[in-house]
């Protein structure tokens, strides 16, 4: 099986796990995605019964969309840049509040192969998770060279989805 295929299997399993956890806790989730372009919501909604836990998913690819639809403060993007922990936090917080969900997750990064900079090379992705207790963000870096002869962009996107689902599962488990 290809590397990306292996990742997809792991994603499917983790998505199922996330949905079960959400159902078990009676919580709802909302997603704001950028470079993953809807892959997180695709993974969650591919699980039967996800309609009970999925409130909303929005793909805010443009900076203006981040500001208009999920209320990411322009001042944050101005100061920290669009690919940053602060922007990921603001996205997670924004989508959670917009959807009225219990958990908001977000992704913003550079999947490549273009768009990388010295500060944010290709593979740099920040993911955010927001709950009523607060918001956190972290860097998930995927080395594009690990994709071998497969598409580095796809590899980075799938790796990111898996990382977000794993982190979401951890947060849901600890959520009261």
């Amino acid at each position: 099986m290809s590397r990306i295929g292996e990742l997809q299997c792991l994603i499917d399993k983790k998505a199922e796990n996330v949905v079960q956890l959400l159902v078990g806790k009676g919580k709802k989730i909302a997603c704001a995605e950028s470079c993953t372009g809807g892959l997180i919501s695709a993974a969650i909604t591919s699980v039967s019964g996800s309609s009970a836990v999925m409130d909303m998913s929005i793909c805010t690819y443009a900076i203006s969309a981040k500001e208009k639809f999920i209320g990411v403060p322009p001042r944050i993007i101005e100061k920290y840049g669009v690919v940053s922990a602060e922007t990921a936090s603001a996205m997670a917080e924004g989508v959670r509040k917009t959807a009225g969900s219990d958990i908001g997750v977000s992704v913003t990064g550079v999947a490549g192969p273009t768009g990388g900079t010295a500060d944010t090379p290709v593979g740099t992705v920040y993911v955010g998770v927001s709950t009523k207790d607060g918001v956190k963000a972290k860097l998930v870096y995927t080395d594009p060279s690990l994709s071998g002869d497969e598409s580095a962009r796809e590899y980075i996107r799938k790796s990111t989805v898996l990382a977000v689902l794993e982190w979401a599962a951890e947060v849901i488990q600890t959520e009261q």
Partner: peptide, 22 residues
């Protein structure tokens, strides 16, 4: 409070948000 939708000028909008006036 921070004024999150603070008014800037076009050069900043171009630089920060691909020209989007927020």
């Amino acid at each position: 409070e921070v004024n999150t939708y603070v008014r800037r000028w076009q050069w900043v909008y171009d630089k920060v948000s691909n020209g989007y006036d927020w």
